[in-house]
């Protein structure tokens, strides 16, 4: 399931669950493409939480998480970042990271 969240909402989500957090920008072609990739993944794994965050509107959070550009995908498990992917990636690369934490 894909959910768009803000910094405040990010602080309230369950950080112990395995999850994918993606930072995107509305001005970024690769981010637009990635949204379709994530939609496809979500269709196949509807229970896996995917949170998307607007890079430009949540600057404090992106600095807190050390996100330097967009799109950036962070993979969390048990409250800790396990891995990250920077730039547009195809489904197999993202699914591999999801399977490593799910």
């Amino acid at each position: 399931m894909i959910t768009e969240i803000t910094q405040q909402e990010y602080e309230q989500i369950d950080h112990l669950q395995p999850m994918l957090v993606e930072f995107y920008s509305k001005t970024c072609g690769p981010c637009k493409m990635l949204s379709f990739v994530l939609k496809d993944i979500s269709k196949k794994q509807p229970d896996f939480p995917i949170y998307i965050i607007d890079f430009d509107e949540n600057r404090e959070l992106k600095e807190q998480l050390g996100v330097k550009g967009f799109p950036t995908m962070l993979f969390f498990k048990d409250g800790a970042e396990v891995s990250r992917l920077e730039g547009l990636k195809q489904k197999p690369a993202i699914i591999k990271e999801i399977e490593a934490i799910a």
């Binding site: 493409m33 379709f36 990739v37 496809d40 195809q90 489904k91 197999p92």
Partner: peptide
């Protein structure tokens, strides 16, 4: 001679 690469394709088509 030789060959070029197989250009990487994208597996998702946007709506």
């Amino acid at each position: 001679l030789g060959s070029l690469e197989v250009t990487e394709e994208f597996d998702t088509e946007p709506e």
